[in-house]
Write a protein that binds this DNA or RNA. Structure first.
Length: 171
DNA sequence: CCCTGATTCGC
DNA sequence: GCGAATCAGG
């Protein structure tokens, strides 16, 4: 199938509406998403009005990089590439967080040897943290050690034991 | 592994 | 001009 004026028109509309290339391809039929993307490019409408994802300015924020006692030379990071307007605002305070009683204050970089390593949040997310409070038992603080080391026991003597026993086989 | 768009390059 | 293959992310 070729690109008739009609199909091109549909393509433009759908693309401007924010549909993904694969969705457009499926709707038009007879073309793959690659074909759609290729056409979109050729038509010169690569940018979008309503992108599903803001699409970061391709700017890698320099990691705070504040371990504990690492030398961490204050190296200057020069950006040879053009920084977009949005990227201009990136102060990166990176204050030395004090480890107190507030959970979730330790990042993977600031997590010290004696801090509770109970994970908080989505590990694949940027705001992933660890509990960070003082370790008490194992790698966890008092509170989380209780949660971590409380398998099956308690509650319903009947059945629970058998369940635990059967479960144990898989460990 | 699913998805996204971007780019390349033989046709 | 076309689009599959490939790349680079999320």
């Amino acid at each position: 199938m070729g690109w008739t004026d009609e199909r091109v028109e549909s393509l433009k509309k759908l693309w401007q509406d924010g549909l993904s290339a694969s969705q457009i391809a499926k709707q038009l039929g007879g073309v793959t998403r690659n074909a759609v993307i290729g056409k979109v490019h050729r038509l010169g409408l690569s940018g979008r009005a309503a992108p599903s994802k803001p699409a970061r300015p391709v700017f890698k924020a320099p990691r705070p990089a504040r371990p504990v006692a690492a030398p961490a030379a204050p190296r200057r990071i020069q950006e040879p590439v053009v920084a977009t307007a949005a990227a201009a605002t990136a102060p990166l305070p990176a204050p030395v967080r004090h480890v107190d009683e507030a959970p979730g204050t330790a990042t993977v970089l600031t997590l010290g040897a004696h801090m509770c390593k109970w994970p908080i949040g989505d590990p694949s997310s940027d705001d992933f943290t660890f509990c960070g409070r003082r370790q008490d038992e194992g790698p966890y603080c008092m509170e989380h050690a209780r949660v971590a080391y409380q398998p099956v026991q308690t509650k319903k003597r009947t059945g629970a034991n058998e369940l635990a026993r059967s479960l144990r086989r898989y460990i």
